[in-house]
């Protein structure tokens, strides 16, 4: 009985462990190993080069640009999405007729396939015939080169990302808002606090952990950015929208510079690991409260 009782949890974990071992642990190890080789494929004909690939990444203008773009994109889109999510949550905090319907509709962009989203917005951004520029020209403004101005293209993609994923930030923040006990506000109201002071001194501090989690989850996702760039700009114009994911994809599946691609992948996994630690710490802190 006790032996089987000790074995049981392992038995239950076996399928998941098998899948993780084959599909993540092994690939992770292989990526790590490959990052130390110069190879155009696997380990056959591979040449051990130590940390040469990492040094090359460091020296590569394109990798540095990809990192800069990814960080810029992550920070700006996360801030905007959390801000938009907070705004929406506050707006929908009080019940009114049609609120449920609105909440459902607001979620629509978030569940669409990124490819569908990209198809729509690529058409919208078209310089000569796109909906946005048609709109601008109708009111007498010049068209905007959404995707071909290198100083603008990244922000156009941010716009799409905010449209698509602000509802996700909203969901988290809204859930947090619902959990704030109403009597906190009652007390403040008795003290004569105005709406702005109530928001600043009560709502915001109580919401802070939710804002943090929303920001963390959004930044993790933004950091992976691939689909939108792949189908919207291919990383261009120039390197203006190249991201680290695109860099890995191009080195790996176009150039077959597997060593260099693996090195870049290792960098990404390291960053993901760091973010996971931050996230785990915040979860543990939340659980302790």
């Amino acid at each position: 009985m006790t032996a089987s009782r000790r074995l049981l949890p392992w038995l239950l974990l076996t399928p998941a462990l098998l899948i993780f071992a084959g599909l993540t642990l092994y690939p992770l190890g292989r990526t790590l190993a490959l990052s130390l080789f110069a190879t155009d494929y696997g380990f056959e004909n591979a040449k051990f080069v130590g940390l040469e690939n990492f040094r090359e990444l460091w020296d590569s203008r394109f990798f540095r640009q990809a990192v800069t773009n990814t960080v810029l994109f992550t920070v700006v889109s996360t801030v905007l999405e959390v801000a938009a999510g907070l705004g929406l949550a506050l707006l929908l905090d009080r019940a009114f007729p049609g609120r449920t319907l609105i909440m459902t509709l607001l979620l629509a962009p978030f569940v669409l396939s990124t490819m569908v989203v990209t198809a729509i917005w690529r058409a919208w951004f078209h310089f000569d015939l796109g909906f946005l520029n048609n709109l601008l020209r109708t009111v007498g403004l010049p068209g905007v080169p959404w995707l071909f101005d290198p100083n603008l293209a990244l922000w156009s993609i941010v716009l799409v990302d905010v449209w698509q994923t602000a509802p996700f930030a909203f969901l988290i923040i809204f859930a947090g808002l619902r959990l704030i006990p109403q009597d906190v506000y009652e007390a403040a109201r008795v003290d004569g606090a105005g709406p702005w002071r109530r928001f600043r001194d009560m709502t915001l501090p109580l919401l802070a952990p939710y804002l943090f989690v929303a920001a963390l989850l959004r930044s993790v996702d933004s950091f992976k950015l691939f689909d939108k760039v792949y189908a919207m700009t291919g990383g261009g114009p120039g390197q203006a929208t190249e991201t680290v994911s695109m860099f890995v994809y191009r080195q790996g599946f176009r150039f077959f510079d597997i060593g260099l691609a693996s090195a870049a992948a290792v960098v990404m996994i390291a960053v993901a690991g760091l973010l996971a630690i931050v996230y785990a710490a915040s979860l543990l802190k939340g659980a302790g409260r």
């Binding site: 290198p150 261009g236 120039g238 390197q239 176009r254 150039f255």
Partner: peptide, 19 residues
């Protein structure tokens, strides 16, 4: 050539957009 072309294309465009 596929790789050479991509490299050249990247740099040509950086020059074209004035960077």
């Amino acid at each position: 050539w596929a790789r050479v072309e991509t490299i050249l294309g990247d740099y040509l465009q950086l020059a074209l957009i004035g960077q």
